[in-house]
Amino acid sequence: MSFFPHLLLAVLEGAVAAATLALTALGLSLVFGVMRVVNVAHGEFYMLGAMVAWWLSQLVPAHPLLGFLLALIGAPLAVGAVAFATERLVLRRIGYDPEATIVATIGLMFLIQQLALSVFGADAKPVNAPFTYRIVFPWFGYSGYKLFVVAASAVLLLCVWWVMSRTRFGLIMRVTQFDRETATAFGIPVGRVYSAVFVAGAAIVAIAAVLLVPIQQAHYLMGLDPLLMSFIVVIIGGLGSLKGSVIAALAIGLLGGIVSVFFSPTFAAIIATLLVAFILVIRPQGFFGAPAR
């Protein structure tokens, strides 16, 4: 294949990878930014969202679009409920202590994985895309649904941005993020804000799962990869900076697509991981975070 089509494919793939990263990282970025805790079970919330999407889609075999719409409502509700229970029963009781949260959410990760395995089984579960359209270029074909995912993730990002910057709830969240004590002093119910943020983060990643599961499959071990990747995106972007997360997702997604064109895949993956490490070595606060303290 000659250079231009190759580049086109790399850009398309990069865009999809970037959208995937941004979608999965969004919820983590929110939770991390406002609550300053690492939710290791974030990937499992994603997996749960995908499993629920699969379960709902096979309940209504009539048309995949029906299952898709059902999942868009059902998955965030179900995953949000799990997140709510987690927040009330565990995180609140340990006072959002960063280290204890890591251990507790690692425990939750195992728990959810095992439950998913026991309930849904170990097989990868394919989910039909709400529509199938193959875009035919002169050199190759490409999935139309993948491009829809790119557009949908842009819309979702805009929504979250709007809530954060233009609504009263967003203001409250930003104040809480800025300084927990001041927020309490101003009468902001920090506990309730935390609950809301944790649930919102889980619901967002569940929506991401519903969007992405047709181009992957639901599998009980699918959570680790998105967890690691969102983690990286959030840190590179800069703690608590939504804009940073989005730009980091774009950069990493496109970078991955392009590097793999020039090097053998495993070698490309080594280079990409090392690049991320060195970016942080040079700029530990990430691109859009404030310098440490």
Partner: peptide, 15 residues
């Protein structure tokens, strides 16, 4: 065309 085991998307290898 060896594919790394961590891969979840493959289109980029097909060219």
């Amino acid at each position: 065309i060896p594919i790394p085991p961590t891969e979840s998307s493959f289109t980029r290898y097909f060219p």
